[in-house]
Amino acid sequence: MLSLEMVLLLSAVLFVIGVIGVIIRRNLIVILMCIELMLNSANLAFIAFARFHQNLDGQIAVFFVMAIAAVEVAVGLALIILIYRNRKTVNIDDLRDLKG
C-alpha cells in the first residue's frame, strides 16, 4: 500500500521538475508543457489527500483544475502561435521586450 508521504513526494518531485523546466527551458511550448506538469503535480496532491482522508472534495477540486488547465492550454497555445506568426520564433530569449 502506498503511503501518503510517498505520493506527496512524487507530487513534489513532479512540481520541482515543472518549475525547473519553466526556468531553464527556452522553448515556449516546452515551458507550457512544464506548467501543465506543475498543475498535474498539484492534482496528484489533491487526489492523494482525497484518497487518504476519505473525502471527495479534493477530487472535485481536481475537476476544476483540469477544466482550467484545458482553457489555459487553449489560450496559451493560441498565444504561442500568434507569437510565432509575428516573430518567427518561439525561443523565449528572443522575446524580451519587457526589459527596462
Binding site: 518549475v19 519553466v22 524580451r96 521586450d97 526589459k99
Partner: peptide
C-alpha cells in the same frame, strides 16, 4: 535597479519562486 529587469520571463519566475 533596472539591471534586475532582464526581460527574461524566466528570471522573473526565479525571483517569484
Amino acid at each position: 535597479v533596472s539591471k534586475l529587469q532582464t526581460g527574461y520571463i524566466q528570471t522573473y519566475i526565479v525571483f517569484f519562486i
